[in-house]
Nucleic acid binder design. Structure first.
Lengths: 156, 156
DNA sequence: TTTGTTGCAAAACGTTTGCAGCCTC
DNA sequence: GAGGCTGCAAACGTTTTGCAACAAA
């Protein structure tokens, strides 16, 4: 969580591929090129993405994968804890999470803007707390309110 | 938040009706019986509900309102901060929130179980924090992991 | 009387599923 | 060769929309 030497971009890429590879083996599944393509694309993407945006991104790069495969793979990566899943709006949003800083989200209830912030007190409180008979893997904190712009547009 | 004398059930009912009434007036909208019926039904409901469960509940009591009206009204009550909205799963879940204790949620990523917990340190950290150029109205903390039951069923 | 609201049905939307063919192991 | 995986299209369930009739102000 607080590695003193960070993986270089190259090593990090190999690392996440290794994690995926191991997890596929552990479950007796198959190492398809689609799974590694999707993983790589996700780790080249900054910020949030949706199944649809990922589908379009891959299409533009001439990787023509079906939506069904992207749904399956993203869900699988979520189970492997290689991506996080959020429901800020109706559509599920994801982001890479291996070797990334734990952060929280501000969501404007008027315009839908999403912004990240960090708070070490909150993180510590949530992560070091004892959850009775519950084995925490991760958490999601979303703070709702009005962004600066919407505070100044005073129509209902 | 920690009133020494709590509203009686009667007063609380009048209070929330008043809040809704005021908010409707403030926006120049109309005080329809449907809106007050839905509000009352929600405040008689403990725990989470969905548009569908609310629709069925009202139907059983012979209030035949359309789903569209329930969607509209519940969203309106959310804007008035009379209900909270969650996306634990695919479908939106709601709960009453006026005069209710702030709490957080545990969600089991295997079976979908949702359980509430409270933590005054977390609540304080989130509520007293300064959000730069952001006007917080409420927040949602969801802790994911495995519930007791799913920890003991060790198949993938 | 004006115009917001309701109920209904259809449409839209994100997501899941069934299945034939393909490819990993 | 067996069986998991993919792509396609159809199905699904939730939510939104369009519109005519209704009712609050």
């Amino acid at each position: 969580m607080d590695n003193s030497k960070k993986d270089s971009s190259k090593n990090s890429k190999e690392t996440i591929q290794q994690i995926l590879s191991d997890e596929i083996e552990r479950r007796g599944l198959r190492k398809t090129p689609e799974r590694f393509t999707i993983l790589e694309e996700i780790y080249q993407t900054e910020g949030h993405f949706t199944v649809d945006s990922l589908y379009n991104q891959l299409n533009e790069k001439n990787y023509h994968l079906s939506r069904a495969t992207i749904y399956n793979t993203v869900e699988f990566l979520y189970e492997c804890h290689l991506v996080l899943k959020h429901y800020f709006h109706k559509e599920a949003e994801y982001e890479k999470c291996f070797n990334c800083k734990v952060h929280h989200h501000l969501v404007c209830t008027k315009c839908g803007m999403v912004k990240e912030f960090t708070d070490s007190n909150i993180r510590r409180d949530v992560q070091t707390r004892h959850y009775k008979k519950f084995d925490m893997t991760h958490f999601s904190l979303v703070v709702y309110g009005l962004c600066e712009k919407c505070q100044n547009n005073h129509q209902v």
